[in-house]
Design a protein around this nucleic acid. Structure first.
Lengths: 110, 110
DNA sequence: CATCATGTTCGCATATTTGAGAACATGCGT
DNA sequence: ACGCATGTTCTCAAATATGCGAACATGATG
C-alpha cells in the first residue's frame, strides 16, 4: 500500500476510509479505544469508524437514516434484529457470526 | 474484460453456483443471509436436543410456546431478534457471541 | 460570528416479530 | 385400533423494531 501511485478503486468504502483517516492520528486513537469493548452497539460503531463512514453515510449504504444508525449504536439499545445486523454487515463488507457458548466460560463477572 | 480462460471444472454445483452468483452481489447477500438463518436455526435445534429438551419444554423455559420455538428452528425463518436469541441462550445456559468478520475471508463454496 | 458536518433525541406511521391457541401429521408403544 | 408425545402450520392480537423527518447540541472551519 505504499506505492506512490494509488491503486485506482471504485470501492466507495475504501475511498471514504482513506479520506477520513489519512494523516489524522487522533482518529485512529479514538478507534483503538473503542476496540476494547465488545457489545453489539460498540462493534457497529467501531466497524463504522474503521471503515471511515459517518452515521449518515452508513445509513445510506444500509438503506435507512442516520437516526436509525444512531439508535443502533446507542449502548443501551437492546432491540437489535438479525436482519438489521446483516444489512449493516453487508454494507461494511462483513459477515455475521453467531455462536452459542457455554455460559460458564470464566469470562463472566464472578 | 472477462477472463478468456476459466478454470476447468466438472463440478456441476460449482458451475451453477458461479452462473447464478457471479457479479450479482444481491444474490450473494441473500445467500449469506439464508446461510446465517439456517445456522442459527440449526444451532438452536442442536442445542435443544443436546440438552434433551422438547420444543414445548424449551418453550416453557424461555417463556413462550412451542409454535414459536418451531418457527425459530425453521431454516427459512429470517426474523430472529437478538432479544429472543438471548432468551434462548439463557434457557440453555449459554451466552451469545456476535462477531463481524471480513466477508472476503474465503467463503467456502457450498 | 456564520456555516457546515456530525451526532443525538423526539414523535409518529409503518413493518415485522412475538404470544397464543387450535388444528393437523407422524411416529411409537400398548 | 387407541392414546400420547412431538413437531408442524395456521391465524389473530399484541409487542417491538424500523423508516423518516424535524429539531437540537457540539465542534471544526472559514
Amino acid at each position: 500500500m505504499s506505492k506512490t501511485k494509488r491503486t485506482p478503486t471504485s470501492d466507495a468504502v475504501a475511498i471514504l476510509h482513506r479520506r477520513y483517516y489519512e494523516g489524522r492520528p487522533e482518529r485512529l486513537a479514538a478507534l483503538e479505544e473503542a476496540r476494547a469493548n465488545d457489545n453489539v452497539a460498540r462493534k457497529i460503531t467501531t466497524l463504522r469508524l474503521q471503515t471511515g463512514l459517518t452515521q449518515r453515510q452508513l445509513a445510506k449504504l444500509v438503506g435507512t437514516t442516520a437516526s436509525v444508525i444512531c439508535r443502533l449504536e446507542s449502548a443501551d439499545y437492546e432491540g437489535h434484529s438479525l436482519a438489521m445486523l446483516q444489512r449493516i454487515a453487508d454494507a461494511l463488507k462483513q459477515r455475521i457470526e453467531i455462536r452459542f457458548v457455554p455460559a460458564s466460560k470464566r469470562l463472566q463477572h464472578v
